[in-house]
């Protein structure tokens, strides 16, 4: 598996903000195999600090999180200015309104649960290369 490279020999980092441990575990395994450096955060309230500390290249963000919703996190991330990383948003709702809200808040990609592993991996690779 070719490592995901950031600049000169630096592995790209993905932060998975997801409170369902088994989904996070599967995503971590898949993306690690793809050569990404993967971290998981399950608390919405801690997500932004974690993001800043990690300087993630791609964020996978669930909508329904304990303490803070994915929409709030996305809003703050985009409001921070600078070069915020691309965000793949995951939702189990999939309603048109959720997608519109996410797009209005500046989401980069949007995916509804249940998704296929190949779909997630392809999307993250695309976002990391963008």
């Amino acid at each position: 598996m070719a490592p995901a490279i950031r600049g000169e020999n630096v592995t790209q980092r993905v932060l998975i903000i997801e409170d369902e441990p088994n989904i996070a575990d599967a995503l971590r395994f898949l993306l690690t195999r793809e050569g990404f450096d993967v971290a998981v955060e399950n608390d919405g309230a801690k997500a932004l600090d974690r993001l800043r500390d990690l300087a993630a290249d791609v964020v996978i963000l669930d909508v329904m999180l304990p303490n803070r919703s994915g929409f709030d996190i996305l809003r703050d991330l985009r409001a921070g200015g600078g070069t915020a990383p691309p965000v793949l948003m995951l939702t189990a709702k999939g309603q048109a309104q959720d997608r519109l809200t996410a797009e209005a808040l500046g989401v980069t990609a949007f995916m509804t649960k249940p998704f296929s592993n190949a779909e997630v991996v392809e999307t993250v690779r695309g976002l990391a290369g963008a």
């Binding site: 369902e20 088994n22 989904i23 575990d25 599967a26 995503l27 395994f29 898949l30 189990a92 649960k113 249940p114 998704f115 296929s116 592993n117 997630v120």
Partner: peptide, 13 residues
Amino acid sequence: LSQITAIRSTAGI
């Protein structure tokens, strides 16, 4: 849907 996602991803792996 979350449970199905976890099962589908893990079973796929």
